[in-house]
Design a protein around this nucleic acid. Structure first.
Length: 523
RNA sequence: GGCCCCAUCGUCUAGUUAGGCCCAGGACAUCGGGUUUUCAUCCCGAAAACAGGGGUUCAAAUCCCCUUGGGGUCACCA
């Protein structure tokens, strides 16, 4: 059997779509599973954009996730060029061949004529088919048209008596009636190729064996099959995988529907997270990032392992119970026959659960490395490499335990990084736990003194100190712990109380308690 | 509207190709209980689905037909 070659062909849009990434992943997986090659080819026939700006984020997404490509931009390869804009001669040659063999024809009909034909068909409730008027033209008429400079396109001459059979690796046998298909334009008036032509020529000449793509392409597969056949190429194996749907629905995930997603309960938390995190790390307007883009996940602190695991499980499964899989394990087990047929909604909760798992697999050092940049960008630490700072970050991360899910979660624990007189108090919690509590202030005074005189400020010693305290006072732990937490951290929840005190250190704890007492009495 | 695809818990899925091992298994989310004298975690438990209707068969989530529902696509976009 020949080497498996798969490809992903993004158009440079300036961002990498998370659904597109899933398609790319399946292609990559299939190539790697078979020891074959994965090719990246750029569909840049629409040349209006600045290519490097538009392509950069896409390549970056692949690099971030660790999905390497064997041929394509930056690495090249023997079937290049890998930019469609540089392959025009190839397309023109193929069109000339089709024209010469009578498998395609020049069409001189105007857009207005075609539009009128379409409407007529619509009115009569019949399927639209080209009238093929240009086929009736005599040679001299054609010459005259060319001499006049009349615009024309090249259309594929669809053999209307055929049934087109596709044996799809995911969908099975699918049949289309060519008698229902209008002749598709394959070359524009300006001489540039259309997608269906370019993709077929590229796939054939790059020796792609498996075309794995989203199912919205299923309906233009018959056109492509016809082009493959007209050009005398062997058909690749097609595998039309379900698209990634928006959370809580079956509609294709699309950047055009962002406003709708913002209101979706399932999606809302992802937007909320962006609003909470991005402005703090210097990205105004969330940096133009949203959860449809792969970059959103990178910037908010997801791990490649989590994204890959979640994406692989969207429309594919290993068996009846395995959820957590490393990329190696997925590569080892990935087969086309285990791809699901129906569209699957991206589930933010499940993604977060994968993320939580993979974050927990990291060593403390790795966690520190992931979290530190957030603190630094938010201006909470000056130099994360400084030993004392690094020590503080490590301690907080240890204390956070499973509360650390995405790397930017560290920002929720900013109380450990702000100056004592800059600490902000959650107003509601402060009122409840300190201001409106009769016993809070006297108890805080007492515990402050005890803490100030403590010899040992480690968590275990503080644990004992607090227990001795409540016993001496004849109160319950709950009576002091909430007020104490509010005073030193400003918040109602956080890491374990004793760890919290120990990390802050004696001096900070005392100062913060004093400040809280003063604040509670000033209003 | 034409053509095409799809249909199992709220969600992602196992089971459908080779009908019986499935009064349907797992995971996420949810709810309840326990641990943590705070929060999160963790542990235990609960609730939760074969879209509907006809067949075929001793036996159907699984095969056939119809209906319904959802989605994709109908460009000189990709």
């Amino acid at each position: 059997m020949s080497t498996v070659r798969t490809r992903f062909a993004p158009s440079p849009t300036g961002y990498m779509h998370i659904g597109g990434m899933r398609t790319a992943l399946f292609n990559w997986l299939w190539a790697r599973h078979n020891g074959g090659q994965f090719i990246l080819r750029i569909d840049d026939t629409d040349q209006e954009r600045n290519l490097s700006e538009a392509l950069g984020p896409i390549l970056q997404a692949f690099k971030w996730l660790g999905l390497n490509w064997d041929e394509g931009p930056e690495v090249e390869g023997e079937y290049g060029p890998y930019f469609q804009s540089e392959r025009n001669d190839l397309y023109r040659a193929a069109v000339d061949q089709l024209l010469a063999e009578g498998k395609a024809y020049r069409c001189y009909e105007t857009p207005e004529e075609i539009q009128a034909d379409r409407e007529a068909a619509q009115n009569e409730k019949r399927n639209y088919l080209n009238l093929r008027r240009s086929l009736e033209l005599t040679e001299s008429e054609k010459e005259q048209y060319e001499a006049e400079g009349r615009p024309s396109v090249v259309r594929l001459l669809v053999p209307r008596d055929q049934k087109i059979q596709i044996d799809d690796a995911v969908r099975g046998h699918v049949e289309f009636d060519a008698g229902l298909m209008p002749d598709p334009v394959i070359l524009r008036g300006n001489g540039t190729p259309l997608y269906n032509l370019a993709t077929v020529i590229d796939d054939a000449q790059m020796k792609i064996t498996h075309v794995i793509r989203a199912e919205e392409h299923l309906s233009n597969t018959p056109v492509q099959v016809l082009i493959f056949q007209a050009l005398g190429y062997d058909l690749p194996v097609f595998a039309h995988i379900p698209f990634v749907a928006a959370p809580g629905g079956k509609e294709k995930l699309s950047k055009r529907k962002l406003d709708k997603y913002r209101k979706s309960p399932q999606f809302k938390k992802m937007f909320d997270k962006a609003e909470a995190v991005f402005p703090r790390i210097g990205l105004e307007n969330a940096g133009g990032l949203d959860p449809v883009m792969v970059e959103y996940y990178e910037k908010i602190g997801y791990l490649p392992e989590a994204i890959l695991n979640a994406l692989a499980r969207l429309g594919w499964s290993l068996d009846d119970k395995t959820e957590i899989m490393s990329l190696d394990k997925i590569v080892e087990n990935f087969t086309l026959d285990r791809i699901v047929k129906s569209a699957a909604g991206l589930d933010p909760d499940k993604l977060l659960s994968f993320q939580s798992h993979w974050m927990n697999q990291l060593s403390l050092e790795e966690k520190v490395a992931h979290c530190s940049p957030y603190l630094q960008k938010a201006g909470l630490v000056k130099d994360a490499g400084d030993p004392a700072t690094r020590q503080r970050i490590s301690q907080v991360i240890v204390g956070m335990e499973d509360r650390l899910k995405v790397a930017s979660d560290i920002l929720d624990f900013d109380e450990f990084f702000v100056a004592d007189d800059q600490l902000e108090y959650d107003e509601k919690n402060f009122k409840k736990r300190i201001q409106n509590s009769e016993e809070a202030v006297p108890l805080l005074e007492k515990i402050k003194n005890r803490l100030a005189n403590a010899d040992d400020f480690h968590a275990e010693a503080l644990d004992k100190l607090l227990h001795d305290f409540v016993e001496a006072e004849g109160i319950g732990m709950g009576q002091i712990i909430h007020a104490l937490r509010a005073a030193v951290s400003g918040k109602g929840t956080g890491i374990g109380m004793f760890d919290c005190l120990a990390i802050l250190g004696k001096e900070s704890c005392v100062k913060r308690i004093e400040r809280a007492i003063t604040l509670s009495q000033s209003e």
